[in-house]
Write a protein that binds this DNA or RNA. Structure first.
Lengths: 380, 380
DNA sequence: CCCAGTTCTGAGAGCGCTCCCACATTCGGC
DNA sequence: GCCGAATGTGGGAGCGCTCTCAGAACTGGG
């Protein structure tokens, strides 16, 4: 028994009392036996049979068809039959088996939000929380269940695609695509209605919803150039994501339009640490820099931390502009000048677009771009 | 068409060019039409028929049984048949329909992680990111898909239970239970293998895995009492969660054991803001306080912010002790003294326990409590 | 009282897959 | 050459549900 040596209790719900400190680390649960256990062997489910529609019908003294009609609230059912079935349902504690229903109707009433990113990383970025809020808002009142899927560590990336294409969900929202991810192509060819959040890099024929990253970055460049800063650098996002590419392109374009050149570019991974590291590199290469545009708020915060550590003040020595306008931007010290993108609306719009797809509405816009705008605060 | 007035583009994947700023907010996508649209009307799926096992078998010139054997990698298949089926599968782009397979096998090869909390709130708390990491670690190599489910705004809480009990998943991990949530009971009676993360308040006969909150809080009390602080207060968690109750009980017990009494208790909701508000209240009631134990790191950070705002220094004027030992604790200024709970291991252990349940292993511990320990840093 | 129209009901054929069972082959050993 | 075992294959009955269709049971107007 693997749990030997670990403090265990069976008195569920009992009020805890002072006990000797729990100790004894014991073997890690992720031991070899657990790892080698294959999925195929799994599944000796509780054998307590769950009641089926047939049993309900028999108990109610009607046919399966009539029972089904009652359960799905259809008309053309006599009051007597309806009462009998309702009674039988509660007596038996019947719950319709969704799998069987879905198999027959070809609908699951659930959608997936896929984050093409390792799970643990996702939850650290406030972007996803906001996006999720938007998606939920878009889903309100539809009766659809949203399931979240993320890359798992011990599992190849293709498992996600297999899951989605196997009929588990009616539609898919894909966010945070990297490089040439095969996922959109798979979904496309499997005929799973899909909307991408964020422009894909690969040319896949799927609708997407994105913020206008390009023009947001143009605005940032224009702002810093107009502020009379001399040596401007940028902390760009990953090279393998459209959002990184677009913001860098916009920045370059805005700089060019203002007749300026970019002194230096460093790439970060949208995290605070990445931003700080990039800033440190930029400071080493361009000690005279006095303005920086970071492609995300988190990276801007990291940059500010690195600047502070290097003895520079913000905004006096160096102006900092971020991107996102997350909650952290306004509460930062000093408050962060940033480019606002409507993240909730991104989620809501993508959801709404996907629902349209499911309803086979025509006249749907192929893709949608939502406006971004510069929010000037104290940092630059 | 609802999207009228919004900037749309069809040139998927094209490099963006400078465009006039996107504007025109347009009507919110979550308009009435979208809300009233019922789930039942949904689902005109792409009509491109997906190939079935029958078609694969026919193309390969074998029976459905043989085709199935090949696809599931069983033995007793001739090399010739195997090759023919493999060929047919790729030619047709066949993907097994999981719904049908699950219906027949009564297994779905997926587990749910249910967060009994509104989605948007979840992602703000680093606890969940760590827990998720642990769950993924526990799942590595099993081939099981994890789906995340959270409370949705426009949907009654029961929808979650219905989803889980309807055969969508083989097992469920439930975290962040509040009060007398009916969910565990539903899962129990539906026979869905379930492990709770965190002690439930209701007396439901389900195994749980939890940190030793009680003794952790005892240690915090002992620590503050031994530090020679005179007036000690605590910021407790929600009254409707076991984790809140247990930490408060532990604190009280530890204080009593040290022959001290608690000057004041304020409840927070585990967020930074809640912690700050609670601290402000406590300061008003007990201006002479010089030590505070917050039931979470986030609340401790909020408390530190409120203390700073009130002109108190940490730890000179007031000692602060948190709970969790999240990443934020070590990087806080000053670094936070806190009670470490092994969150990743909590996730790993719960997962491992659930896998054991699925494999119908006997000798499984009913419930497990993992040790906590005080980590002394500068804040108190 | 008959017949068209409406309301109600049940039989039965799927949905796409698995898996048991029976039947065909092949193989090796005496 | 014969027989049991090992190996390969197809038929068919489910899994639990939906949904069409045909027919039964009521209406009520002429």
């Amino acid at each position: 028994m693997r749990a030997s040596g670990r403090d265990t209790r069976g008195d569920h719900g009992a009020r805890p009392a002072v006990r000797p400190a729990t100790g004894v680390a014991g073997g890690s649960p992720a031991d070899t036996a657990a790892v080698e256990r294959e999925a195929t062997k799994r599944g000796a489910r509780t054998d307590r049979r769950v009641p089926t529609l047939d049993e309900v019908a028999r108990l109610a003294g009607v046919s399966r068809s009539t029972a089904s009609r009652v359960i799905n609230g259809q008309s053309y059912v006599s009051a007597r039959a309806r009462a009998a079935v309702t009674e039988a349902v509660t007596r038996l504690g019947y719950r319709p088996n969704m799998l069987a229903r879905s198999l027959a109707t070809r609908r699951t009433n659930s959608l997936a939000l896929v984050v093409s990113e390792h799970g643990s990383r996702v939850l650290d970025d406030p972007f996803f929380a906001r996006l999720l809020r938007g998606v939920y808002a878009g889903l309100a009142g539809t009766g659809l269940q949203l399931v979240l899927l993320m890359d798992q560590d011990g599992q190849d990336h293709a498992a996600l695609g297999r899951y989605l294409c196997a009929g588990h969900v009616d539609g898919t929202l894909v966010v945070s695509l990297h490089g040439e991810d095969p996922l959109p192509g798979q979904l496309r060819s499997a005929g799973v209605p899909t909307v991408l959040v964020g422009r894909p890099l690969s040319t896949v024929d799927l609708p997407y919803v994105d913020a206008d990253n390009f023009n947001g970055a143009v605005a940032a460049a224009r702002h810093l150039a107009a502020a009379g800063r001399g040596t401007l650098v940028t902390i760009a996002g990953p090279r393998d994501m459209a959002v990184g590419i677009d913001r860098l392109a916009g920045w370059r374009c805005g700089m060019a339009a203002a007749g300026r050149r970019t002194a230096g570019v460093a790439h970060g991974d949208f995290t605070v640490e990445g931003g700080a590291a990039a800033m440190t590199r930029l400071l080493a290469d361009h000690p005279d820099l006095d303005g920086v545009f970071a492609a995300s708020d988190l990276m801007a915060l990291g940059a500010m931390r690195a600047l502070r550590a290097a003895g520079r003040t913000v905004p006096d020595d160096v102006a900092v502009v971020g991107f996102d306008d997350s909650d952290l931007a306004a509460t930062a010290v000093p408050p962060l000048t940033t480019v606002r993108q409507p993240v909730e609306e991104l989620g809501r719009t993508a959801t709404w677009r996907l629902l349209g797809e499911l309803d086979a509405e025509d006249q749907l816009p192929p893709s949608v771009l939502l406006p971004t705008e510069l929010v000037a605060r104290a940092s630059g």
